[in-house]
């Protein structure tokens, strides 16, 4: 589904990704871990198409398409979804109106018919319930004045509504208490099936107790320096990242 080859990217004059390789197949969950500043969020931003990042080398193919050639909204249309580490507050745009527009823009991109009001409301009710999102949150301005937990639940709620092929979760666990973490993880697990995939970017192993990865990769200095299974995450939790740094330097 997703093939990243030798990806290099920078922001302003600083090179952050320095030759990253990753392949994600349908049905898989990949966790990307690593110390602060290793390039985890940059990877998420580059994949979603954030303008400030300049890709200086390598290629990314998403279901056979050159992802880097597409505008952010086209990437979403192709089935890519990024759950933001810091969801943006947009005053005056209601959560519901935003979702309805997003769903129908993606449908339009795929050449599908718009979802009618009844179908939309039904879908929204069902998914909101899964994510414990209250009615009042749906009519409020997008993320405006939401608590940290509400923002993250709202991200996964959007994931369920838009039902993409590939979900990238950028530190979705940061700032969540255990109850919110469970709700968010359950949401992601409900989303998972044999045809879609998830990339979980996280600093801590905690989230991976709930969203169990098939593969764990360690990102350090802009490259994936070690890959393994879920046991690798436990080892990192136990020993920290220093031994990886030592290994890389050796």
């Amino acid at each position: 589904m997703l093939q990243i080859k030798n990806l290099q990217a920078r922001i302003e004059e600083e090179n952050i990704l320095k030759g990253l390789n990753l392949e994600v197949k349908p049905g898989e969950v990949h966790a990307i871990m690593g110390p602060n500043g290793s390039g985890k969020s940059t990877l998420a931003s580059v994949l979603a198409g954030r303008e400030e990042y300049e890709v200086t080398g390598g290629e990314v193919s998403f279901d056979g398409k050159d992802l880097l050639e597409l505008a952010p909204e086209e990437r979403a249309g192709e089935g890519l979804f990024l759950a933001f580490q810091y969801p943006i507050e947009i005053p005056g745009v209601s959560n519901t109106n935003f979702l309805k527009t997003a769903i129908n823009e993606i449908r339009k991109y795929k050449g599908e018919e718009e979802l009618d009001a009844v179908g939309f409301l039904k879908l929204m009710k069902e998914k909101a319930k899964l994510m414990d999102i209250e009615q009042s949150l749906l009519s409020r301005s997008l993320n405006e004045g939401f608590s940290g937990g509400e923002k993250k639940r709202n991200e996964i709620f959007q994931l369920l509504m838009l039902n993409p092929k590939l979900a990238i979760l950028d530190e979705t666990d940061s700032g969540l208490d255990i109850d919110a973490l469970k709700i968010v993880s359950e949401g992601v697990n409900k989303f998972r099936n044999k045809d879609n995939a998830v990339i979980v970017i996280t600093h801590y192993q905690r989230l991976l107790d709930y969203i169990v990865p098939d593969f764990v990769h360690v990102l350090y200095q802009g490259k994936i320096v070690k890959s393994g299974t879920k046991e690798l995450a436990l080892e990192l939790e136990d020993k920290g990242y220093d031994w990886i740094k030592t290994e890389v330097l050796a």
């Binding site: 198409g49 952010p72 990437r75 933001f84 943006i88 005056g92 745009v93 935003f98 997003a102 993606i106």
Partner: peptide, 24 residues
Amino acid sequence: TEALFYLQSRGISKKKAQAMMVQA
């Protein structure tokens, strides 16, 4: 631009995203 990118990342075209924000 952050808000614009957020809306775009949900499949909303830049033009439409801009219109939504101005309208708001």
